[in-house]
Design a protein around this nucleic acid. Structure first.
Lengths: 238, 238
DNA sequence: CTCAACCACTTGTGCGGACGAGTGGAAGAA
DNA sequence: TTCTTCCACTCGTCCGCACAAGTGGTTGAG
């Protein structure tokens, strides 16, 4: 008398179908057996089959079309990671030569606006040059309000071995919650062109990092040369 | 006798409960009325109530505990929308003057590779100039393999009033499934610069539209002037 | 030939009933 | 008093049936 735990039948049906999709037995675009056929094959009620199919549809494995059938979409890829330059920059460990400059400067207008402070308020600017294969591949500047930088090492020129995000969390319990990122194409500034060694167009990234309450923790601005960077994104069509 | 469209009952029950949660009538942590009570209140079968509650649970509105009841969690936060230039282009209705050129041409190498055909295979190129406030704001080219274009109007210079996606679905049952999009910064080609009336750097978008089986339906390439376009993205930090 | 009606098939929604299992309190035994 | 048993209530799963409605091919009238 110990059947132990038999999973519910609708789950068994789901699992079977998932396995067949992963095995390629049901290929993307194929029509699944109809509900009636599945009812016969698994010897369960239609309610059960429908529940399995509807759950699979909600999870993105299949698509159901009224009057036509159910069709395989494939393994629902976990949100195909979009490229997120803004976040990546704060996660990176800083190498010995990457930090070129840490200054206390008056905030330029567009940075001040994003930080939510008055223009020309003093802020910490932490500039880095990312390298790939020895050649400079991006110029990044992190802007911190003074209150945030206070008591941390982001205003010191030494590289942060575990990245900015880790550091802020460790010493001040500041937790990143979400990032707003704006992206455009522009020519590099004279300074950026010098650091990059090229005047070609760049992807200009402007990212604002917020905590859970919505306060701005820092702003990141970057110039990614267009001939070295390509941002890729894959997404489902509704 | 024209009830027009009554939404399904389970959806009505869901909506009612959602509204009560948003109105604060059911506060987070509260226990919802039991299934039996809801059956009486809405005068529907238990199947219907259960389906509504299970869907709400999957969407994160409530939590269900076996043997105890259903409990309010609150409004689920939805993942914020991302910008998708690739898809937008295929949804747009085409205006009278936007389509400037429709040609049968030999596929350039990078387009041929994305379409999965040999270089210099003939393909249909459909070029459009998007305008905003009378000024050209983007140059977009849609590339179709001949098999796809066959029997459709995408190879005719007349504007498609309902957009390319609608058209392909209507006349050939082609359904878009997902889009792969690559983005970079570059200088406009001579032709693009002329059409745009400016030599400033552009965001280069290269999007590939696939069906459920992964086959490529079309490729879209576009030049978005950096001084007119800014792509914004908001995302949660895990 | 063209077109409308029809039919077979699909999924969508809904009902009532049944039984299982987890929870928590009340009644009764020790 | 304390512990056990019982019971009413909850949700979880499952069945069979019914009818609506969308789709696509066939048939037959014109």
């Amino acid at each position: 008398m110990s059947m132990d735990f038999a999973p519910p039948k609708y789950a068994q049906v789901m699992k079977a179908i998932q396995q067949r999709i992963e095995a390629g037995e049901y290929a993307p675009g194929d029509m699944l057996p109809s509900e009636t056929q599945l009812v016969r094959e698994f010897a369960v009620g239609r309610t059960t089959v429908v529940r399995a199919l509807q759950t699979l549809a909600m999870q993105g494995w299949i698509e159901r079309e009224h009057g036509r059938g159910s069709f395989v979409k494939g393994r629902p890829d976990s949100p195909p990671d979009r490229v997120r330059p803004g976040l990546a920059v704060t996660e990176q460990a800083e190498g010995a030569e990457s930090v070129t400059e840490v200054e206390r400067v008056a905030a330029p207008r567009h940075i001040a606006r994003l930080l939510g402070v008055a223009e020309r308020t003093p802020v910490i600017a932490r500039r880095r040059v990312a390298k790939q294969g020895g050649r400079p591949s991006a110029v990044e500047t992190l802007w911190f309000p003074l209150e945030i930088a206070l008591g941390t090492d982001v205003d010191k020129p030494e590289p942060l071995r575990h990245g900015v995000r880790q550091h802020l969390q460790a010493v001040k319990h500041l937790r990143f919650d979400h990032v707003t990122e704006r992206l455009t194409a522009r020519n590099p500034t004279k300074e950026e062109a010098e650091l990059l060694g090229s005047p070609k167009p760049v992807l200009g990234v402007l990212a604002t990092v917020h905590d859970a309450a919505g306060s701005v923790l820092l702003v990141m601005s970057a110039a990614l040369p267009g001939d070295l960077h390509e941002l890729q994104d894959v997404y489902q069509v509704s």
